[in-house]
């Protein structure tokens, strides 16, 4: 297993290199630059600005300087938009918030999704199943930018239970985590239901029933392990999605997370911040996929580390 993990880790080096290189050049070839604004400045001032950020050097020099700074010092450079912050500072400042939002949403998604999925599978083709399945279908169909304001309207503006936006106290965290969590809970519920149904029809479950095992024992001891497999494969990309896809939630709820920086940096042509966030997300996605692969082998003895 260690050889498997070591090999996968080694493979990430060229992958990251390709990602960094492609992003570096792609972002440069997009029209418009970090200093374009509605009110134009003089060509001399623009030249001063470009010199200040080293953008006057030939592109290949900028590229090698950038790589050197990352590899030798772990320095992701300075943001051109937020003059007083380096990319490292911005990431260190914002990532914990995104992780917190992601963690809370994931917990909600798992608790709601797994329980709903199991209940629906066990009570297949009953009212309970239909209710849970319609909830899941709705959750998948309703986008976060509709669900978010809807929840704010009900729980913040009319009932006044939670905050409409911000990220200061616990009341601020409820609605955004719920909004992001519900969408993924819906997906998890459907997958769990599907996975469980498949497993519940297997011979070994029938054998367990025939031997008089209790329903709880059948579900939790025998069925759940197999039923969870599709959910685990879904979780890798889902966690990455929760972390990178929190842009909408962060904007709706005014949360100081990294998702907003990730998207806005591209709009601002903040080259270094684009690269910094892309690298970070690439590392996150690669590591999460690795974790999922390892967990899957653990769960399913038919798979081997290869």
């Amino acid at each position: 297993m260690f050889r498997f993990i070591a090999r996968r880790l080694l493979e990430t080096i060229p992958v990251l290199f390709i990602i960094v290189t492609a992003t570096f050049f792609m972002v440069r070839f997009v029209p418009g630059g970090p200093f374009d604004s509605e009110k134009a400045t003089t060509p001399e001032i623009r030249a001063n600005l470009e010199a200040y950020y080293g953008l006057n050097l030939p592109l290949h020099r900028q590229y090698t300087n950038y790589l050197k700074a990352i590899v030798l010092h772990g320095d992701l450079g300075r943001s051109t938009k937020y003059a007083s912050r380096t990319v490292n500072e911005i990431i260190a400042d914002k990532l914990p918030t995104s992780l917190e939002l992601g963690g809370l949403s994931l917990a909600i998604a798992l608790v709601l999704g797994l329980s709903a999925g199991v209940i629906a599978a066990v009570r297949r083709n009953t009212k309970v199943d239909y209710i849970v399945s319609s909830f899941a279908m709705t959750g998948i169909c309703v986008p976060t930018f509709v669900l978010g304001p809807l929840l704010v309207l009900i729980f913040a503006i009319h009932l006044g239970w939670f905050s409409a936006s911000g990220w200061y106290v616990w009341q601020d965290r409820v609605l955004p985590s719920l909004t992001l969590g519900i969408v993924y809970a819906a997906g998890i519920a459907r997958l769990t239901r599907g996975g469980m149904l498949e497993v519940l029809n297997q011979d070994y479950i029938r054998t367990a029933r025939a031997k008089g095992a209790s329903e709880a024992r059948i579900i939790f001891r025998h069925a759940l392990r197999g039923g969870l497999l599709p959910v685990v494969s879904y979780l890798g990309p889902a966690i990455a999605g929760i972390l990178t896809g929190s842009f909408v939630i962060e904007t709706i709820f005014q949360i100081p997370g990294l998702g907003r920086e990730f998207v806005n940096s591209a709009f601002n042509r903040d080259y270094t911040l684009v690269l910094g966030t892309v690298i970070l997300y690439a590392v996150l996605i690669i590591s999460l996929n690795l974790v999922v692969d390892v967990v899957q082998v653990w769960l399913n003895p038919k798979l081997k580390f290869e």
């Binding site: 918030t97 992780l99 963690g103 994931l106 024992r217 939790f220 001891r221 967990v295 653990w298 769960l299």
Partner: peptide, 26 residues
């Protein structure tokens, strides 16, 4: 009730979540 394998998987998931929250402590 849980198989050792599943228990380990659940532990791992819990640990991952905990790490998340630890990272979030202000």
């Amino acid at each position: 009730m849980f198989t050792p394998l599943l228990r380990r998987a659940v532990l791992l998931a819990t640990a991952t979540l905990l790490t998340f929250f630890a990272g979030c402590s202000k």
